[in-house]
């Protein structure tokens, strides 16, 4: 459960990126966050990832109070999330297997568990046969799927995708989205930040619209 209570974010240079955000997302919801560029979508992401801290207001994700949380607890919070980025952010010098496994190594999973689980996850994203390839050998869509697999590695409660289809051709974009829906069906909260109108319209989920640092619309099956 994610709860923004009157969240304001002002950057050191004076710009107000978010001006009083009130947003509540329940467990298991699928939410699109849309808006023009500069509206504050990326700031919202950064706050959720605890990359930035709120200037004022309250922000809770499940049992984590992101406002009061000390720096050293941040890694433990982030392990509860599965994040997918527009630029994939895979380790170029690790294989697909190792990229996915890394998430598990971070939390100290023994090798036996890793060996068992990674192939399973890779098959969810239909990449089981590519486990030994390097990211440079894969297409954009395949790389994103690896990122998705990594996001799923530790069975997080929440998946956050920041412009997941930004660097991918339209056909593959649909596949990625379908995977996200598939993941959502497994009782995960899925948040997708995007500006792809066609996808938003196609999938008919809750749509939260942000403009100029404020939420201007929030409805089911909303239109972009």
């Amino acid at each position: 459960m994610i709860d923004f209570r009157n969240v304001k974010k002002v950057y050191p240079n004076g710009t107000t990126a978010l001006d009083g955000i009130n947003l509540h997302i329940d467990d298991g919801e699928f939410v699109f966050i849309v808006g023009p560029s500069g509206a504050g979508k990326s700031t919202l992401m950064k706050l959720l990832l605890r990359e930035e801290r709120v200037t004022s207001g309250r922000l809770t994700v499940d049992e984590f109070d992101l406002v009061k949380m000390p720096e050293r607890k941040v890694p433990y919070y982030r392990r509860q999330l599965g994040v997918v980025f527009q630029d994939f952010r895979l380790f170029p010098n690790k294989t697909v297997f190792e990229n996915v496994a890394f998430a598990m190594r971070v939390i100290g999973e023994p090798s036996s568990v890793i060996k068992r689980r990674v192939p399973t996850i890779l098959s969810i994203v239909n990449l089981a046969d590519k486990y030994n390839c390097y990211p440079t050998e894969l297409s954009g869509g395949e790389q994103q799927r690896v990122a998705l697999a990594r996001a799923l590695a530790n069975n997080p409660r929440t998946i956050i995708a920041d412009e997941p289809t930004g660097n991918i051709d339209p056909k593959m974009s649909l596949e990625i989205m379908n995977l996200l829906v598939k993941i959502h069906k497994r009782n995960k909260t899925v948040i997708v930040v995007t500006h792809e109108k066609t996808l938003v319209d196609y999938f008919q989920q809750r749509v939260v619209t942000i403009r100029d640092g404020r939420i201007v619309d929030d409805r089911m099956g909303g239109m972009f």
Partner: peptide
């Protein structure tokens, strides 16, 4: 640097 920041996104602690 990039590798390190990716590691942090995935929830790796500093000592890791």
């Amino acid at each position: 640097r990039q590798e390190i920041s990716i590691m942090r996104y995935v929830g790796a602690t500093n000592w890791f």
